[in-house]
Nucleic acid binder design. Structure first.
Length: 486
RNA sequence: GGCCCCAUCGUCUAGCGGUCUAGGACAUCACCCUCUCAAGGUGGAGGCACGGGUUCGAACCCCGUUGGGGCUGCCA
């Protein structure tokens, strides 16, 4: 495994080591699709290069983090198949590391304590012509840890921080524009830029692939890496995912939870395939790829620079393709839980067998698994319920419905064998007899027997429903029609 | 406001100075197939934000404009 690399140049690191990447989410809400894509890109690189993928939970903000979100992240990653080689490490269990680093920085005068409140700073810096942000007020006050203040990093000015981003190329920041940012809160809790960097050094991270929103943090990270004397990883900032209004996907505003998509019946490989294509595309311009193919072809240097809209329509299409490619066995296994959650489902071997034999007809008609129950419902639901307006429009409002149903009933009773072929022959014959297209003939029949206007092919459906139930439903419909006309 | 990033069909993208009268995919429209609905097939409409350069030649390079986004927290 050591040193084994795929075909792209991304496996090379500045140092003569092998790749170590990390995914470092903060457990402050449902795990969302943007995070999933970032995690996947990291994972693809690690797998391609034979490197290590580390999962690190950035939970230093006790106020905002909840343990259940950690589980949510791990579950979602597992579902997607994004496996981690190390971790999950929790920053909340590594606090002494950050405290040591902070002390070191303070002792070496790379950082200083500051007791200014936000209001005090604002009062000094807000106004026309003044630069907002911290003004360095306590920089030379020589306050100590006992001051009860926050620890601020002493940004070296003048100076500039430049680096070559794996996605964007060279980026330059003037240190002049960076305020002395806080490393440790006055309550002793480390902040992102400290804990993040300390861990990246401690864990030997060689490549940091994260969302573009972190780009402005990077010069700060750089300075902390340098102050701490740690090896600086290569950075790559991938564009954010946006909603239809082109704003960064937000947990509060947008529907983004991976868990939701899983529940709805999206398949993990479809999700990964779609996610990978948001910002990246393979050399040969193919869209459908297995995870293995993506591992082989992914190249961080080839990721686009502009934000992408997370288009559920296209995701749906991808999912439909993946579903249609499922084996009958897999499709049955994936579908069963969705059917089992319905009140009309009775879990018997016979029903399972019927379900299994009817499922191939459903497979090509759906894009997500949660659509399965509605398609097979007519086969199992007893008594049958009608979708809104179906009884009224298709049965009661159709002047020919009664006559058609009467004749169909007779036809069924006269069948030598209750089979698909005989059913078809009989109905086609009736359509000739009535001088109406088969689709017109089957409309009231479908409504009467399935309670729906559209659905799986009718002949097969009637066979699955069974002769007795079919006749009974036709009788019910005939009665309903008679009732409405009396 | 300041700093940074970005800019090819509605959307995701291919394109990395001539092969572009710009290719593919989703969505959309039409037609075909068809027992409904899908799926599938064929075809159509639809784009290089704008203005300057550089060059024999620019979607591709440079500058500006405009537009969008991110950050600007004792969040990450």
């Amino acid at each position: 495994m050591v040193g084994q690399c795929g075909p792209t140049s991304q496996c090379q690191s500045d140092r003569n080591e092998f790749m170590r990447v990390r995914f470092a989410p903060s457990p402050t809400g449902y795990f969302h699709v943007g995070g999933a894509r970032t995690a996947f890109y990291n994972w693809l690189m690690a797998r391609q290069c034979g490197g290590s993928f580390v999962l690190r939970i950035e939970d230093t903000d006790a106020e905002r983090n909840r343990e259940e979100w950690v589980d949510g992240i791990c579950d979602a990653l597992s579902w997607l198949g994004i496996t981690w080689d190390e971790g999950p490490f929790r920053q909340s269990e590594r606090l002494s590391l950050y405290a040591n680093a902070a002390e070191d920085l303070f002792n070496r005068q790379k950082a200083y304590y500051c007791t200014c409140t936000r209001d005090e700073i604002d009062a000094r810096t807000t106004g026309i012509g003044r630069k907002p942000g911290y003004d360095g007020h306590c920089r030379d006050s020589n306050l100590g840890p006992s001051s009860g203040g926050a620890l601020r990093f002493k940004v070296p000015t003048p100076g500039e921080t430049r680096f070559v981003d794996l996605v964007r190329g060279e980026v330059v920041f003037d240190n002049q524009n960076l305020e002395d940012f806080i490393l440790v809160k006055s309550n002793g809790a480390p902040l992102f830029v400290l804990a993040n960097v300390v861990d990246d050094i401690d864990m030997g991270i060689t490549h940091v692939i994260r969302a573009e929103e972190h780009l402005p943090n990077t010069p700060k990270s750089y300075m902390v890496f340098e102050a701490l004397g740690g090896a600086i990883p290569q950075f790559g900032h991938v564009p954010v995912l946006v909603n239809e209004k082109r704003q960064k996907l937000s947990k509060r505003r947008d529907r983004v939870a991976v868990e939701d998509y899983r529940k709805q019946g999206f398949l993990a490989p479809a999700m990964l395939n779609y996610l990978a294509l948001l910002g990246w595309s393979p050399k040969d311009d193919r869209e459908f790829m297995t995870v293995e193919e993506m591992i082989l072809q992914f190249d961080i240097n080839n990721v686009g620079h502009s934000p992408s809209f997370f288009d559920e329509k296209k995701l749906l299409h991808f999912n439909g393709v993946y579903i249609r490619n499922l084996s009958e066995e897999d499709f049955f296994n994936y579908s069963l839980p969705y059917v089992q959650s319905m009140s009309w489902w009775i879990d018997t071997d016979l029903n399972r067998a019927t379900l299994k034999s009817s499922l191939p007809l459903a497979k090509e008609r759906i894009a997500i698994l949660s659509e399965v129950p509605e398609l097979v419902r007519p086969i199992f639901e007893e008594p049958l319920s009608f979708l809104p307006n179906v009884r009224e429009n298709e049965l009661l409002a159709n002047p020919m419905a009664d006559e058609i149903l009467q004749r169909v009933k007779l036809g069924i009773l006269g069948l030598g064998k209750y089979s698909h072929d005989e059913m078809e022959e009989m109905l086609r014959g009736l359509s000739v007899e009535f001088s109406i297209p088969l689709r017109k003939l089957q409309a009231p029949l479908r409504a009467a027997t399935t309670g729906a206007k559209v659905g799986m092919p009718l002949f097969e459906t009637l066979i699955h429903i069974g002769k007795e139930k079919t006749i009974a439903r036709i009788d019910d419909a005939i009665r309903a029609i008679a009732l409405s006309r009396s």
